[in-house]
Amino acid sequence: MTAPVELSGTYQGAELDDIIRTFTASRPGATPAQLSFAITTSPIWRDSIKIAEAKRAQHAAPVFMYQLAYPSPTLVPGTDLPVGSPHASDINLKFANTDYILNKDQSRERLATARHMSDLWAGFAHTSRPTAAGVPRWPAYTPIDRGTMWLDARCRIVNDPARNERLFWENQACAWRPTSQVTRPC
């Protein structure tokens, strides 16, 4: 049995119930803490999608999307629950900064994830395409397949990750925007 998810913010009542129901269905087995982190940071992913689609619409350069999939064993403060991969937990990994002082997790998986991330970023800086040895070819993002690199010790491409969550937020945005502000079909 899991404890209820507690969220602060502007969501209440039926709207909050819909959010929790959507994320619980999307993430079976997630702890309440993991659901809380996912819900409170999901606007960052939603906005990343908007930025990627706007950038792609410029037809100037390919766009590449990723999500950190490495499940950090770092604990939620004051609990024995792991946080998973919350927002900003990828920053030091991008630079292969695996300093023990910064993060006590020195597992082979975390070190491999850091190597993949830093190699992909270096490949992108060198060739304008994120490439690295031992990592699948990273396709450019399109609104059709929404190919996203799942960064972990074993990287993989996931098409339209968190699809139900994305659709939930898109439907919410349409429900709250006046028709005159809707620039694409909802």
Rank of each mutant, 00 (worst) to 15 (best):
I49H: 02
Y100P: 05
I157E: 13
R46M: 04
R156D: 01
P62A: 00
S26F: 00
V63Q: 11
L35K: 01
A30C: 04
T10R: 09
A3S: 13
I39G: 00
L120V: 10
F37P: 01
F95I: 09
E6V: 05
A61T: 06
W45E: 00
P4E: 04
P136K: 08
M1N: 13
C174V: 09
P130I: 02
E15G: 04
E53F: 13
D80L: 06
V63M: 05
S36Y: 14
W138H: 00
L7K: 04
L81P: 00
T127V: 11
R137T: 03
P62C: 11
R108L: 14
P185W: 03
L7E: 07
W150R: 10
P82A: 01
T127S: 14
E53Y: 09
S180R: 13
P143G: 11
D18K: 02
A30T: 00
A14G: 08
V76N: 01
T40A: 05
C155L: 05
L7V: 01
S42C: 07
A33T: 08
W150T: 00
R184A: 11
T2L: 03
T41Y: 10
N97M: 03
A122I: 14
E53P: 07
L35D: 03
T24K: 12
I44H: 14
T98S: 09
R163A: 01
P130Y: 06
L35N: 03
Q67E: 05
